[in-house]
């Protein structure tokens, strides 16, 4: 087999494999229906092919072939739009919605993953082509896959805040988690259910950066959605009272969460909250700026 073909084949295989490995992380954030899996694997294959031909094409002085990469970028932006539209249209069927910030985050991730696939394919095929050995190409491609996965992992709530369980109490019709007011519940029957089944948690940010992340309403909606998905939610379409809520203490920046889960295990609740990804749109770093740092004293 000639050198071009070996390099391209290796790039395509490594790129598609990279897409497959990145797909495994989606199970929790997004239902990986068999058809969705096929969609994304196919797009990953296309991305890998485009990446894999780049270096052999340049070597063959076929410079126009590289312009296909620009075409690919347009295509993958389409992927982002497709995901966004789909998740938005499914939003009405969710008992606890994801919220626009979470949807945007997921859509952006899907787009970015295709670029990573291209990166893996370009590296594997490029190195293999230049060195003339597919083994060296393989040896470079594998670490790139893992580096790419690691870089894209992002942070989770457990990294920015201490998550601990808390107690809820009623003051008349008002329900509190520690000192944070959650909501007003009029009906005694609903209050009774809360009294019996509700579970509460408090999220204490480690620093000012964490405080501002938890202040983001989209981030809190993402926490509510993920937790409700993992533990089940004691509500139906006609019982809006049981929507999980996260409210903030404006003085300390602590956030309290109240949920009526189907599975009442507190440790699992805390684990679910800790593993919610920090959304890109919520990520702010006031401590990196002079004013933010001096204000935090």
């Amino acid at each position: 087999m000639n050198r071009d073909l070996t390099a391209i084949l290796l790039g395509v295989v490594m790129g598609t494999l990279a897409r497959f490995l990145m797909l495994r992380r989606d199970v929790r954030q997004y239902p990986s229906y068999p058809h969705s899996v096929v969609n994304h694997l196919a797009l990953g294959f296309v991305a890998a092919t485009l990446g894999a031909v780049a270096v052999p094409a340049i070597a063959a002085r076929e410079f126009t072939a590289v312009t296909f990469l620009a075409l690919a970028a347009t295509q993958f932006r389409e992927v982002r739009n497709m995901e966004r539209e789909m998740l938005k249209s499914l939003e009405h069927s969710q008992l606890v919605s994801r919220g626009p910030d979470f949807i945007e985050g997921i859509a952006r991730t899907f787009e970015a993953r295709n670029y990573l696939v291209m990166l893996v394919a370009v590296t594997a095929s490029g190195i293999s082509f230049v060195s003339g050995s597919w083994l060296i190409g393989l040896a470079t491609g594998v670490p790139v896959i893992f580096i790419a996965r690691r870089l894209m992992k992002g942070r989770v709530i457990g990294d920015i805040a201490r998550v601990r369980s808390a107690r809820h109490r009623f003051e008349g019709p008002n329900i509190f988690v520690e000192d944070i007011h959650i909501m007003n519940l009029g009906l005694p029957e609903i209050r009774e259910t809360y009294h019996r089944l509700a579970r509460a948690a408090v999220l204490e940010p480690f620093d000012d950066n964490g405080r501002e992340i938890l202040a983001n309403v989209g981030q809190r909606q993402a926490i509510a959605h993920d937790t409700a998905t993992l533990l089940g939610i004691h509500r139906d379409v006609d019982t809006a009272e049981f929507t999980p809520l996260l409210r903030r203490n404006p003085e300390s920046g602590r956030v309290a969460m109240l949920i009526v889960p189907i599975e009442p295990d507190e440790e699992c609740l805390l684990e679910a909250i800790r593993n919610v990804p920090v959304l890109e749109s919520a990520r702010v770093k006031p401590l990196a700026a002079k004013a933010g740092k001096c204000a935090s004293d």
């Binding site: 019709p173 007003n184 519940l185 009906l187 005694p188 609903i190 006609d238 019982t239 809006a240 009272e241």
Partner: peptide, 17 residues
């Protein structure tokens, strides 16, 4: 309470006191 419960179910609303 009975009226409020029924209305909250029918209207998919939350009853506040």
């Amino acid at each position: 309470e009975f009226i409020a419960t029924t209305l909250s179910r029918v209207l998919e609303a939350v009853a506040h006191d």
